[in-house]
Amino acid sequence: MFAIYKREVKSYFDTMIGWVFIAFLMVVTGIYMYVYNFYYGFPYFGYTLYGIEFLYMIFIPILTMRSMAEERKGKTDQLLLTSPVSATQIVLGKFFAMATVLALALVPFFFTPILISSYGNGSYLIDYSTMLTFFLLGCVYIGIGMLISSLTESQIIAAVGTFVVLLLLHLWPSLMNLLPTSSASTAIGMALLLALVCLVLHSMTKNIILALGVGIIGILAIVISYLTQAEWMDGGLVTLMSQLELAAVLTDAGYNYILDVSGLILYLSLIFLMIFVTVQMMCKRRWS
């Protein structure tokens, strides 16, 4: 795994991608930091980080698009998969390489809180914990990008796909406002989600009994809940979908000055999930 990690990091800086990523991220963050912290005198760098969350949407796809797609296209995955390394090690090596590039881009930010404090009263606690949240959120997005990259051979499709998913996640709070909150709509919404889950289950396991089984149990649960007017049905759809508001943790940290540790754990679990599914995708390709 270490060999792959080293190679990937080196490759990001031998080609222009690593440099471009860091440079642009720093330029835009620098502008925001100047405007928020130095022009308007806002004392917390964490607020700037909250403001630049949207940048991930643009830059993460650039970083992740070639991680898996290029290996398949150039047939170098043949080298990796016929060597005595497991698919898990390959995916981990690549993930950590991308996380490293992100971390390197964030290193200059370490100095900003100190800079701010030299002019007034900053808060190291807020700033550095927001930085940690920001970094972990970036890692989750990298995981998503890597997974999407593993689904295709074309880097462009991977980039666009990742961008769309990240855009959706960015707009999630606004989208949640549009969802109806009545009981009936919750039931219908849940049923639709259930159908989606069953479809995915079926396409991954090709086991129609499993998919139908899960579907039938799910429908029963929904119908019973609706008929008995269970409490959670009221606005339940919104509550369920809101769990996916990943950036909310960053908002809490940078805007509300709350460090949501459970949110960080959510991030770590999602990272783990993304890596796991990517490994499965890699292995699945061998069998078909």
Partner: peptide, 11 residues
């Protein structure tokens, strides 16, 4: 050695 040698062009 596969049919197409698995090489990384940038190395």
């Amino acid at each position: 050695l596969p049919e197409m040698p698995p090489l990384y062009p940038e190395m």
